[in-house]
Design a protein around this nucleic acid. Structure first.
Lengths: 182, 182
DNA sequence: AGAAGTTAGTTGGATATCCAACTAACTCGC
DNA sequence: GCGAGTTAGTTGGATATCCAACTAACTTCT
């Protein structure tokens, strides 16, 4: 899981989102000299809208984490899944999907992959043979440890960008949005 | 564009992200009576990590906007694209993709669709025949107006969740993350 | 106990996205 | 003024995700 995961690690050249309306509607930067002057884009209302900035921030953060976890040869998307299984041994796929904010059908291939790679063990429940119980194997725990280290480093970067003073409030707001918006 | 758009409008049942570690590692909620007690999930470190919460918030917000814009029969994903073209008449596809934070190849089908539906006009540049100039048509402007109304309502909801006091700082932080994280 | 309803997980069809590789068109250096 | 390099946009192949529809297994109601 973890955010429409798996963007790869493309280096995207984003323009900074201009705070101010720069009067002159967009338009072809002169570039007399031949070098391409970074054209300043007018974002209009997007610049001050929460939805758009939320998306840009999320993707930026996810990309960074993606790169980091690919360095250790793991899929960033597996991180939330592994953590949730570790913390909730015997969790079912449906519960897992709800916790991770994904459709249960999205988890089918993810869990299959984790099982195939020996990270997760999957047993039918005794008393309800529709349901699986998921548990981490030793290998899964080891991988999770590595991924967690990655994630901690990543979090430290985010922390430094946000600043200790605002961090708590920032997360509260994110949680509130996740919980309260429709 | 606007966030790995087009999730449809699925009603996802997310568990709230528990702030506190609930000691007892996950585990099978009793459900004596037969009714399914909403199992309380242990999110472990995810609960306090920015990346995960950023994702959950972003998706929640996007879903809400998605539903709203589908009500007026438009694709939420087109919103940022139309806005950027409106504000930057004659913008090229590459510039547009950078501004929207998407790969230029992702824009090919989007722009095609907008042109086909008569929202956007696309002309080769005189002096550089590789490049297109994009402009909104009257129909495009009309659609954008509707979408903008939608988005304003959506923003108002987000505003009320965040609270006027924190809003400015919140957006600043989002911008900072988008700009500074790798 | 049997039919009707509900739930867990899978399958199928669709979309949005990425990256790498491509083509056509431009620019530069000599 | 021509070949090497660069840039704009498209194409192809891959992944992650969604929703709707399905099957198998439970539960409930009469």
């Amino acid at each position: 899981m973890a955010a429409r995961m798996m963007n790869g690690s493309g280096t995207k050249h984003r323009s900074k989102i201009g705070g101010k309306e720069n009067g002159k509607a967009g338009g072809k930067t002169g570039s007399k000299s031949g070098e391409t002057v970074a054209k300043s884009i007018n974002f209009g209302p997007l610049a001050t809208w929460i939805g758009f900035n939320l998306r840009m921030a999320q993707e930026s953060a996810f990309q960074a984490f993606s790169r980091r976890s690919l360095e250790i040869g793991e899929n960033p998307g597996r991180f939330a899944t592994l953590t949730l299984i570790a913390r909730n041994p015997g969790i079912s796929q449906t519960e897992l999907s709800q916790a991770a904010g994904r459709d249960k059908s999205s988890l089918t291939p993810v869990v299959e992959d984790l099982v195939r790679r020996g990270m997760v063990e999957r047993k039918r429940m005794r008393d309800d043979r529709r349901t699986y119980r998921l548990n981490l194997t030793a290998a899964g725990k080891k991988t999770l440890t590595q991924l967690t280290r990655c994630a901690s480093q990543h979090e430290r970067v985010l922390d430094s960008v946000i600043g200790a003073r605002d961090r708590k409030r920032f997360i509260e707001i994110l949680k509130k949005i996740a919980a309260e918006v429709e």
